[in-house]
Structure formats: structure tokens, C-alpha cells
Simulated assay, not measured.
Amino acid sequence: MAQRLSAHMTVMQNAAQRAAKRLLRDFNEVEQLQVSVKGPGDFVSQADMRAEQILRDDLTKARPGYAFLMEESGASGSENWAWRWVIDPLDGTSNFLHGIPHWAISIALERRLPDGSTEIAAAVVYAPAVDEMFWAEKGTGAYLNDRRLRVSARREMREAVFATGIPFAITSPRNRLAFARTLGTLMPHVAGIRRFGAAALDLAWTAAGRYDGYWECGIKAWDITAGLLIVREAGGYATDPGGGDPRTSGDVVAANPHLHPALRDAVIDGITAAEARSA
């Protein structure tokens, strides 16, 4: 029996699917896209901007008072927002522009609590090229299309496959050093490490048990906010290396409950070594 969607989730999935139609048309003509370069390895295309505008228009029409935090256009709306959309209209832009069908639309909905803190209330990560809709709402579980998701049950590091993001040219020296140390620590002890180039999908695939965990340092809130909730609602842990909120620190460690402590320890070791070397 299909899971009944809430009003928020219906709005989010409909907006993602409408933006996806435009992105898929552009993906099929990727050679003809006009692309400008924001920085090494960080491209923005007409497709990206068009998708962001579709999402903004649809979500504003459905929920006029909500604020936005978006990759291309930044923050907008009231600073004292009660609800806010956090959106990456095209996660995996480099994959998209090279014709690699591993990219996604990421939409999260944050809610401000009475004490002034915020929580992630709902999330969608949609991979249009394979028609996979990962989604979750706080307290109701995580799903892939109509199927309930659970993180993997593996307990041994030697059986684990982890995902990460390899630093590129504009990455800070601290994060490059931390990555190298963490990678060197993990590689002799795990079954494999993958880099597919889309953080939102790395988290969604961790929720689905395709990966046993994922880590990355120096990542933006719009890349991970939706995925954090999907992992947690699938029974996993998603924190920063110190156990705090990755939305604040930009560093994320996500895994099943059995492997999260060991992965965190490896990332902490990498960061500690990098900071000592940079001091």
C-alpha cells in the first residue's frame, strides 16, 4: 500500500518532478548548454538556474510565507522565518555537464522551534535520470518511491563500503589534508571507498543501505540538509565529527549505528592531524 503523502511532501515532490522535466531535456542536449565557470570544478549552467527558478516559483506559490536558502541565489525571505526551504536544484553539476546520469534535486524543509533552534521537518532527494525519489518526514520514516528504507546492518569495517567527496582545487588546505589522512586510515581496513560526485545522493544511498556510510568536510548546507533527515529516518546516524549538527560545521559523518563510531574516529583523526600540521 502506498504511503500517504502529507501536504508538504506533495508540494515538494511535485516541484521536484516539474524541475526534473526541464533538467532532463537539458541533460539530453548537454553539449549545447552554455556554461560559465564559477571556479575550478564548480560549474553553473543555464540548466541549474532554470531548475532553481522552477522550484522557487512552485514552492512560493504553494507556501508564500516561507523563506529560502538556495545554492545559486542564496538566502531570501524573512530573517525571522518560521519555515525555510533549503535547496540544491542540481547536485552533481559536474556529472550532469559531462553526461554522467548521477545527479539529483535536493529539497529540505526546516522548521524553527520555540527555543530558536531549527530542525529538518521534511526532505526530498530526487534522481531524475533513474526516477528514484528518496524522501522523509521527521518521525515517519524514510522511503525510496513507495518502499521503506533502512540503513545497512553491517558491523565489520572490513565488509563496509563508504562514500566520500574528493577535494578539488578550491578546497581549503585543511580539508585536503584531513581527507588524505582519513582516506589513508580507512583504505586498508574497508571493502571499498567510492566517489560518485553528488553529496545528496551519497546520503540517500547510505539511507538505502547501498553505502554503509559517508563522510565529507567543508560541504554546504544545501548539499546535505535533505540527506541528513533521510539517513536519520532510515535508522542511521548523521552528525558532524564532534557529534554536532553538520548544517553548522559543514563536516558530515553518516553511517549505520554499528559503523558510525569507527568512521567518526577516522575522520576526527584526519581533522586533528590536518589542524596540527597547519598550525
Results as ranks from 00 to 15, higher is better:
residue 152 S to M: 09
residue 230 I to H: 02
residue 150 R to K: 14
residue 204 A to G: 11
residue 1 M to I: 15
residue 16 A to R: 08
residue 143 Y to V: 09
residue 135 W to R: 10
residue 88 D to Q: 10
residue 234 A to H: 07
residue 267 V to Q: 01
residue 244 G to P: 05
residue 14 N to H: 15
residue 7 A to V: 12
residue 148 R to W: 06
residue 123 A to N: 11
residue 76 S to Y: 05
residue 232 R to V: 12
residue 39 G to D: 10
residue 271 I to S: 00
residue 143 Y to M: 13
residue 50 R to Q: 12
residue 108 A to T: 08
residue 227 G to V: 08
residue 227 G to K: 07
residue 169 A to H: 11
residue 132 E to S: 08
residue 256 N to L: 06
residue 121 A to F: 08
residue 263 L to M: 04
residue 185 T to Q: 08
residue 251 D to R: 01
residue 158 R to V: 00
residue 67 A to S: 11
residue 140 T to C: 13
residue 153 A to S: 14
residue 224 I to W: 12
residue 97 L to T: 04
residue 85 W to Y: 12
residue 125 V to D: 09
residue 83 W to E: 15
residue 172 S to D: 04
residue 163 A to E: 04
residue 133 M to Q: 10
residue 84 R to W: 00
residue 89 P to C: 08
residue 151 V to M: 02
residue 255 A to F: 00
residue 1 M to Y: 14
residue 182 T to D: 06
residue 202 D to K: 08
residue 256 N to Q: 04
residue 239 T to E: 07
residue 237 Y to M: 14
residue 122 A to H: 11
residue 215 W to R: 02
residue 50 R to E: 13
residue 85 W to I: 02
residue 260 H to S: 14
residue 131 D to L: 04
residue 152 S to N: 03
residue 5 L to Y: 03
residue 210 R to A: 15
residue 113 L to Y: 13
residue 102 H to F: 15
residue 212 D to G: 05
